[in-house]
């Protein structure tokens, strides 16, 4: 299975990073890489993730991360924090596969 990348912007609260990575592992993905650049305000984490079986989709993982409190933005393409204001997640498409 391929490794896919998720970029996540989150508030730097107690447990925030643990919560995110724990969710990824629990929901059936391996964490293959982590990049957490130093920042002053919110955090941006780039995660390389790989599904443990074919039933797991990145779309579901994406939405599960999105609903965590303190997560501001999730994207399958990397972004930078400077122009993150107002970006937000693409609306959950109402037609899924």
């Amino acid at each position: 299975m391929n490794t896919q990348t998720l970029s996540v912007e989150l508030q730097p609260a107690e447990g925030a990073v643990l919560r995110l990575i724990g969710l990824v592992e629990r929901r059936g993905f391996e964490v293959r890489s982590i990049n957490l650049p130093a920042s002053t305000g919110s955090l941006r984490l780039d995660l390389g993730v790989r599904a443990r079986d074919t039933a797991r989709t990145i779309e579901t993982l994406h939405r599960q991360i999105k609903r965590l409190s303190g997560v501001c933005r999730v994207s399958e393409t990397p972004f930078t924090l400077t122009n993150s204001q107002g970006g937000g997640d693409e609306q959950n498409q109402h037609k899924s596969a």
Binding site: E59, T60, R63, Q64, K66, N92, H94, K95, S96
Partner: peptide, 16 residues
């Protein structure tokens, strides 16, 4: 909860 949509069964139409 949009995260429930498509989790175990794909939806033809989702109304989150």
């Amino acid at each position: 909860d949009p995260a429930e949509i498509g989790k175990l069964r794909a939806a033809d139409i989702a109304v989150p």
